[in-house]
Simulated scan of single mutants.
Amino acid sequence: MKYRSNQRLRWLVPAMLLSAPQLASAESLEDFQTWGNVTAVGSFGFIDPKFKSFRFWLEGQGRFGEDTSRLSQSMVRPALGYAINENASVWLGYAWIFTDRPFTGRRFDENRIWQQFLWTQKTALGTFTSRTRLEQRFAETGSDVGWRFRQFVKLSVPLDFAPDFSLVGWEEIFVRINKADWSGDDGFDQNRVFVGLGYNLNKEIRTEVGYMNQYIRRAEAPDRISHILSVNLFLNY
């Protein structure tokens, strides 16, 4: 059992690290940040069993930049969903985002409408998750609606020698579909890669803590690379 777990770790960590963007240049700006996230997902079955396929999503984030010295971004992201089966669900949600330095020179609020398809599957290696999301973004700094596509893939590999712990790796790619008057060029926007440890406190509560690398492409300013301590709490009801 220990040998099989070591084999999983042997390929997962290098794969995630090699997938991190290698686009840094002398002109890129780098920063150390700390991001905190709390996400609660559950079923409306507690109201009535006939509503068990209908889901809710409540998420809050705080992102601290400039060497974790200031609140640089905060987010509230609720949604309603429907479970197609035990593996797949579809979602429709809203998000409010406040953004400040170092992500922008002028602080602003952003509102989003978003849709996503979520797939979770148990595999021989661990739990695989795919999340495909489409966003319509409205910012007070411009009049255009910015459309953005996001693809997220994640693998959580349980540790045989410590059943409540798992090695977690994920990557998310962001692509701007159109060129809005406030969001820069269309095309590739950013990439995020995470490697860390997950811990199940019980069936409903899980934490994931680790390192995230965020690369942001900017058309009219130096690109950004952030080294992030990512702390996450997931509540599943």
Rank of each mutant, 00 (worst) to 15 (best):
Y82T: 11
Y82V: 06
I84W: 08
I84T: 10
N85E: 03
E86C: 14
V90W: 06
W91S: 09
W91E: 03
G93I: 01
Y94M: 09
F98N: 11
P102Y: 02
T104I: 15
T104P: 00
F108P: 03
D109A: 14
N111W: 00
F117P: 05
W119I: 13
T120V: 11
T120M: 07
Q121G: 10
A124K: 08
L125W: 14
L125F: 07
L125S: 13
T127D: 03
T127M: 12
S130Y: 02
S130H: 13
S130K: 15
T132G: 11
Q136N: 14
Q136P: 12
R137F: 13
R137W: 13
R137I: 01
R137N: 01
F138A: 05
A139W: 07
T141G: 04
T141D: 07
G142N: 07
G142H: 03
S143E: 15
S143N: 12
D144T: 02
V145M: 07
W147Y: 13
F149W: 12
R150I: 11
Q151R: 10
Q151Y: 10
F152P: 04
V153T: 14
S156Y: 10
V157M: 13
V157Q: 11
P158W: 06
L159F: 13
A162M: 11
D164F: 11
S166D: 10
S166V: 05
L167A: 03
V168F: 03
G169K: 02
G169T: 02
W170N: 13
E171P: 14
E172P: 01
I173S: 04
F174H: 05
V175K: 08
R176M: 12
I177F: 04
N178Y: 02
A180H: 00
D181S: 02
G184A: 05
D185I: 10
D185Y: 11
G187K: 04
F188N: 09
D189W: 08
D189S: 07
N191G: 15
N191P: 07
R192T: 08
